[in-house]
Computed example of a mutant assay.
Amino acid sequence: MNQDGKLNYVEFPATDLAATKAFFGAAFDWSFTDYGPDYIAFSDQGLDGGFFRSEQSSSTATGAALLVLYSADIKATLAKVQQHGGTVIKAIFDFPGGCRFHFTEPSGNEFAVWSEGQV
């Protein structure tokens, strides 16, 4: 449900829409709607959004926001990320409230995954 003044949608650049779509479909079971050759959208993932064709990517090193996914089994999720073409850029580490890791997907965008508990 759309709510006034609340986050509603997020967009990311993607150098390879097909690879990004395949990665998130396999690693996180996302589905996409294609809107022409330069845009794919996802929904029902906690926040709706999309990827647009671009030669750039989103990284915290360049000041981009970090979107963090939740996992009930962080080690299994890390294995799926690696199996399906993601690159782990920060191994699992503890932080107050849980643990997490950071990865890039095939188009180079940085995401993180967190879970309750410590490693």
Rank of each mutant, 00 (worst) to 15 (best):
M1S: 14
N2C: 10
Q3D: 11
Q3E: 15
G5W: 10
G5H: 11
G5L: 10
G5V: 05
K6F: 15
L7K: 12
L7P: 11
L7Q: 13
L7R: 09
N8P: 08
V10C: 07
A14N: 05
T15H: 06
D16W: 01
D16E: 11
L17I: 04
L17S: 01
L17M: 07
A18I: 11
A18G: 03
A18N: 13
A19L: 06
T20I: 06
T20W: 01
K21Q: 15
A22F: 09
A22C: 10
F23W: 00
F24I: 05
F24S: 02
G25P: 06
G25S: 13
G25Q: 09
A26H: 04
A26F: 08
A26S: 14
A27G: 05
D29I: 08
D29N: 14
F32R: 04
F32T: 04
T33S: 12
T33A: 15
D34M: 06
D34W: 11
Y35T: 15
G36T: 06
G36D: 04
P37V: 11
D38I: 11
Y39P: 02
I40F: 03
I40V: 08
S43F: 14
S43G: 13
D44R: 09
G46I: 03
L47H: 07
D48L: 06
D48A: 12
D48R: 05
G49R: 09
G49Q: 03
G50R: 09
G50S: 07
F51M: 05
F51G: 06
F52D: 05
R53G: 14
S54I: 07
S54C: 08
E55A: 13
E55L: 11
S59R: 12
T60G: 10
T60V: 15
A61F: 09
A61G: 14
A61W: 08
T62I: 14
T62G: 11
G63M: 11
G63E: 07
A65E: 04
L66M: 10
L66A: 04
L67I: 08
L67G: 01
L67M: 05
L67E: 01
V68T: 11
L69N: 10
L69S: 04
Y70D: 10
S71R: 00
A72G: 14
A72H: 14
D73S: 05
K75G: 11
A76T: 07
A76D: 06
T77H: 08
T77S: 07
L78W: 05
K80W: 00
K80T: 09
K80Q: 10
V81D: 02
Q82W: 06
Q82Y: 06
G85Q: 03
G86H: 01
G86T: 00
G86V: 01
V88H: 03
I89F: 02
K90P: 04
A91D: 13
A91E: 12
A91I: 10
A91W: 04
I92T: 12
F95C: 01
F95W: 13
F95M: 12
G97V: 01
G98V: 04
C99M: 11
H102V: 13
F103W: 01
S107A: 09
S107N: 00
G108H: 04
E110V: 07
A112M: 04
A112D: 02
A112R: 09
V113T: 00
S115Q: 05
E116G: 12
G117E: 07
Q118E: 14
V119T: 13
